[in-house]
Design a binder for these strands. Sequence first.
DNA 1: TGAACGGTTGAATATCTGTTCAACTGTTTG
DNA 2: CAAACAGTTGAACAGATATTCAACCGTTCA
Lengths: 123, 123
Amino acid sequence: MKEIEKNAEVCESDVVHESVVASVRAALPDEDTLADVAELFKVFGDSTRTRILSALFEAELCVCDIASLLGMTKSAVSHQLRILRQTKVVKNRKQGKEVYYSLDDDHISRIYKMALEHLAEDR
Amino acid sequence: MKEIEKNAEVCESDVVHESVVASVRAALPDEDTLADVAELFKVFGDSTRTRILSALFEAELCVCDIASLLGMTKSAVSHQLRILRQTKVVKNRKQGKEVYYSLDDDHISRIYKMALEHLAEDR
DNA sequence: TGAACGGTTGAATATCTGTTCAACTGTTTG
DNA sequence: CAAACAGTTGAACAGATATTCAACCGTTCA
């Protein structure tokens, strides 16, 4: 181990299974789509946001309701709601001083519920 | 604004919609389940991992193949594969010097594909 | 008009997370 | 056996991210 071991960035491609890799590469969705998938899942990948979402499955709620429900500050909740708003997962409606939030997208709800069912089966 | 504004941790609960909040609270899945949902989605919430997964949709691959496919070091790929292994998303099989990875769970595959379709519709 | 309240926002902080680097294990093969 | 290679691992580093804090905006209502 006296020599500096230079970890080549890519595998020296003699050994790789060329033909398989080539066909897989052709079948891969484009980078943008995959980045979007990751982006979408990242939104669900935080327990504060999953808690907010499962609350909104039940009813339309104002920020104060959610904060009280989760035992968090309105500020923290508002920050997370902004993320959910930007990714079009929730929508809001202003009435007087209060802002009411609800789920925006049925698709996303279905994906989310599917995961819940998946985990329920494992128990 | 001379007084120190103390942002109460929880909303002063006179204003909250008591009955709605109560019924929502009763309907919420327990904390552990929600944490697991977040955990599951977090795994998909990284584009390196989504790229690995969509590759494994097509074929069983060794680490070197994947590294070459993604243009990344074997080390980086291996670290991500460890996460996917620990969460039971992929399984591996050792043959000689090589370690072959494939998808472990059909459920998870379905959730993932659903998201891909969801995004495809938006385009 | 101004106090009170619901909600938002930006900056600061602490924590988490992905990649790199270097070293190491285990298997094959000359 | 020793070199070569596939793959793993832990520490270190850099970038991302969630929460807090303090200030602010807009609406209501006394």
